[in-house]
Amino acid sequence: MNIFRLTGDLTHLMSIIVLLLKIHTIKSCAGISLKTQELYALVFATRYLDIFTTYISLYNTVMKLIFLGTSFSIVWYMRRHKTVRLSYDKNNDTFRHYFLVLPCFLLALVLNNRFTVREVLWTFSLYLEAVAIIPQLVLLQRSKNVDNLTGNYVFFLGAYRGFYLINWIYRYFTENHYRRWITWMAGIVQTALYVDFFYYYFKSWKNNEKLKLPA
C-alpha cells in the first residue's frame, strides 16, 4: 500500500459518502443518474467475486464490503425509497446500459489476462468502471443547474482513479515486473472522461459560480 493508492481509496469512499449524505439527509437524488449507480453496483459485483475466497488484508475486505454495500443501497434508495425515488429525473436519465455493458463484456472476452470466468468478469468490471460515469455526465449536461453535492460527488469519483494512476506509476518504478497493462489502459480512459468535467468544475469554483456543463 502506498500513499497514492490510500488517497485514491479514501477519495473514492468520500464520493460515496457525499452521495449517501445527499440521498439520506435531504432525501433527494436530483441530478443523480440511476443508470450510473446500477453500473457501479455491477462493477463491484463482478470485481469482488473473490471477496470470500481470497484474503488480502482486513482493509481490503472491509473496503470491498463497504463499496458493495453502499452501491447496492444507493440503487435501492433510488428505486424503492418512497421519497427519494420521487426526485429521480427519469426523463433525462435515459442512457441505455447495454450500450456500455455489451461492448465491455465483448472486449473482456477478447482482451484479458486469462480466459477463465473470474478473470473475464474481473476484466469486464475494469472496462465497465471506465465508462460507467457516462450516463451521469450526460445527465449533468441535461440538468439545468448542478447542485454542489452532485458536483462534489462527480469530482471525487473522477479524482480517485487519478490517484490510482499515480499509484501505478509509483509501483512500476518501485516494484520490478509490476505491469498491469489492462488496468492501466482502463484507468487512463476512465480519468480522461472526467477531464472536461474537471475543467468546468474548477472554473466554477474559481469564479465562485454555479457549476454548468455546456450541453
Partner: peptide, 10 residues
C-alpha cells in the same frame, strides 16, 4: 508479463 493473478488493489 501482466501477472494480474495477485489482485491486491480495490
Amino acid at each position: 508479463e501482466d501477472a494480474s493473478s495477485e489482485k491486491d488493489e480495490l
